[in-house]
Amino acid sequence: MAGLGQAAPMPHDHSDHPHALLPSEPALRVKALETILVRKGLIDPAALDEIIDTYQNKIGPQNGARVVARAWSDPVFKAALLADADTVLAELGYYGRQGEHMVVVENTPEQHNMVVCTLCSCYPWPLLGIPPGWYKSDAYRARAVRAPRAVLAEFGVTLPAETSVRVWDSTAEVRYLVLPMRPAGTDAMEEEDLLALVSRDSMIGTALAALPAAALPPTTAPPTTNGAQT
């Protein structure tokens, strides 16, 4: 790749950090590091492709949505999930890196839950995949613990004053998943149809579950079958 030997100007005048040795332009820099590691046999480029495919296409919020829809539909499952998430999720195959110790917290009219990692970017990968940019942003990390209601407003969510907010700062290897409230008007819906109402953000706690199409003003648009792919 052209440019590997033509680094952008170095921002460090006298740093001794090894990371100052590669090109500063991020895409070139990652490519340069990959090239070095491949030459030495330390990295298999096909393994990188496989990791990316895993988190782009196989593991994502569709997993968490399935757990939520099932909990909404099956009270026994829900009780077990809230009491011992690790056992229940392992049975479903939703175990793995960054999801070794799971706790599911339930939203109620009295209590809204919201998850953050102020120190880095801890997030329940097996259930939600790779965290979105805003979850890793300084603004979210800094403000979710001090001003959760202001942050919620930035997501378009306004809670009643009588609903308490509980923010979970993921400071250990325990990962938290929010079980959002089942929307009104969905009593007749099957588990498969409920999936589309469970957004990624509703399981982080920065959104509520979506209202069903039947509860919205009439529209000619066809119903979505699965809104959890992104």
Binding site: W134, A139, A142, R143
Partner: peptide, 13 residues
């Protein structure tokens, strides 16, 4: 950075 001031609004994706 938990609690820090000055970062501005969160921008959802």
């Amino acid at each position: 950075m938990g609690g820090r001031f000055g970062d501005g609004p969160v921008v959802p994706d």
